[in-house]
C-alpha cells in the first residue's frame, strides 16, 4: 500500500510527523563545498521533504547521524563521572540502500566486536527507523551491485520523489496513522540493477599470498599521489574509527568532558604508539591497510560480506582523484599475478 504526499499540500503531514519524530536526511548546504560556489550535501535535521536532496548523492554519509564526528560521551568532576545524555525521540533516517547496508556493517563493529555493545551507538541505533530513499540509477562512482548492497527489503518507509510529490510505501504499522487520509498510490521501490562500474573483489587464498600482496610494488604509487588527508574515510559510509579527547574546563583539571572524535587510518600518526612505535609510516602502507580492511580483513573476521558497500563517496571526495574501484582493480591484478607466479 502506497501513498502520495502531494507537493505543496504536505505542511500538515510533516508537522504531524515532526511532533513525534526527528527527521534526518541529506540536505544542501549552499556554497559550503571544498571549492568556492560549490555546495555540500550532508545529513542534517530537516523540517520537511522540501529540504531533502533526492537527485544527488550526498557528499557525506548517513553514518554522521548515528556516529557524529564529534560527541561528548562523559562528563567528569573530580572522582565522579556520568555518561552524556541522549534524546529518546525516534528518528526517521532517510537513507539509500548503500547507507542502510553500511549501518548494518557498522553494527557489527559497534555492537558485536569484542563482545561489548557500545552504549553511544546502541542508544542512537535504537531510535532509528529506516526510510529507504529509492535509488534506481546510482552515479558513476557507485558500485553497490558488485558489493551486493543495491537491494533492501527491511524498512519502515520507502520513498520516491516524483513531479507530483513524494510516494511512500509504509511498512511499519506505527507510521500508518500519519498517512491516514492521504491519496493512495501504487508504489514499490525499485533498485539499481547495474552500475556503470563493476568490480570483482579478489579472493586472497592464504596468508602467504596476503603477505606477498602487502609487499607488492603497486602500492608504492600512492606515495606520490595520496596526501593522507583522510577525506576518503570521513566520506566512507562504513568507517568506524574514532579517538577520544579529554577537554578540561577552564583552569581546573578536575572538571571536564571526554569526547569521541572521528579519526582516520589515512592520517599520519593514527597508529603511533607509546615507545615511538608507528606501524604504517607512509601513504602507500596506509592505503594498503584501508583497502585490505575494506576488501578482506573485515570479511575474514565477521564472515558474510565485505565492509565496503560500494557507495563511491571516497572516490568522489578524494582531492587527488584516487578511485577506489581503479585501486581495487590494481589490487586484483596484483593478486592474479602473485597467484599465477606461485603455481
Amino acid at each position: 500500500m502506497g501513498y502520495l504526499i502531494g507537493k505543496g499540500e504536505d505542511a500538515a503531514f510533516w508537522a504531524k510527523l515532526r511532533q513525534d519524530y526527528d527527521i534526518y536526511a541529506p540536505k544542501r548546504f549552499p556554497k559550503q563545498g571544498r571549492f568556492s560556489d560549490t555546495d555540500i550535501i550532508r545529513y542534517d535535521r530537516v523540517e520537511s521533504g522540501a529540504e531533502i536532496v533526492f537527485d544527488e548523492k550526498s557528499d557525506y554519509p548517513a553514518k554522521e547521524v548515528l556516529t557524529p564526528i564529534c560527541q561528548a560521551i562523559l562528563y567528569f568532576t573530580e572522582d565522579e563521572y556520568r555518561a552524556s545524555k541522549a534524546s529518546q525521540r525516534p528518528i526517521l533516517l532517510f537513507m539509500r540502500p548503500c547507507d542502510i547496508h553500511a549501518m548494518q556493517h557498522q553494527e557489527k563493529i559497534y555492537l558485536e566486536n569484542g563482545g561489548v555493545a557500545d552504549l553511544y551507538y546502541r542508544r542512537m541505533r535504537e531510535r532509528v527507523h529506516i526510510v529507504l530513499m529509492e535509488c534506481s540509477e546510482g552515479w558513476d562512482t557507485c558500485f553497490c551491485v558488485s558489493m551486493g548492497t543495491n537491494r533492501v527489503e527491511d524498512y519502515a518507509l520507502a520513498v520516491r520523489q516524483t513531479e507530483q510529490g513524494l510516494l511512500f510505501d509504509v511498512r511499519e504499522d506505527a507510521l500508518k496513522t500519519y498517512f491516514a487520509g492521504q491519496p493512495a498510490a501504487d508504489f514499490q521501490p525499485v533498485f539499481v540493477e547495474k552500475n556503470s562500474v563493476s568490480v570483482t573483489v579478489p579472493e586472497i587464498a592464504d596468508k602467504e599470498l596476503l603477505l606477498k600482496l602487502k609487499e607488492h610494488p603497486f602500492w608504492q604509487q600512492f606515495n606520490g599521489r595520496c596526501e593522507s588527508c583522510g577525506a576518503c574515510t570521513i566520506a566512507c559510509s562504513t568507517c568506524t574509527c574514532f579517538t577520544t579527547r579529554d577537554v578540561i574546563y577552564g583552569d581546573n583539571p578536575a572538571v571536564g568532558e571526554r569526547r569521541r572524535v572521528t579519526s582516520s587510518c589515512q592520517v599520519s600518526g593514527f597508529d603511533d604508539m607509546a615507545g615511538g612505535i608507528s606501524f604504517r609510516k607512509d601513504a602507500a602502507s596506509r592505503m594498503r591497510y584501508k583497502m585490505l580492511h575494506k576488501f578482506r580483513d573485515y570479511k575474514a573476521r565477521f564472515g558474510d560480506h565485505h565492509m565496503c558497500v560500494g557507495c563511491g563517496r571516497c572516490t568522489d571526495r578524494c582531492p587527488q582523484f584516487i578511485s577506489v574501484t581503479a585501486t581495487l582493480e590494481k589490487m586484483a591484478a596484483a593478486v592474479a599475478e602473485l597467484s599465477s607466479a606461485s603455481k
Binding site: 548546504f29 559550503q32 571544498r34 557525506y60 588527508c229 571526495r317
Partner: peptide, 10 residues
Amino acid sequence: KACPAGAWTR
C-alpha cells in the same frame, strides 16, 4: 580546501 571533513566553510 585542505579539510577532509568540511569543518571550514566559506
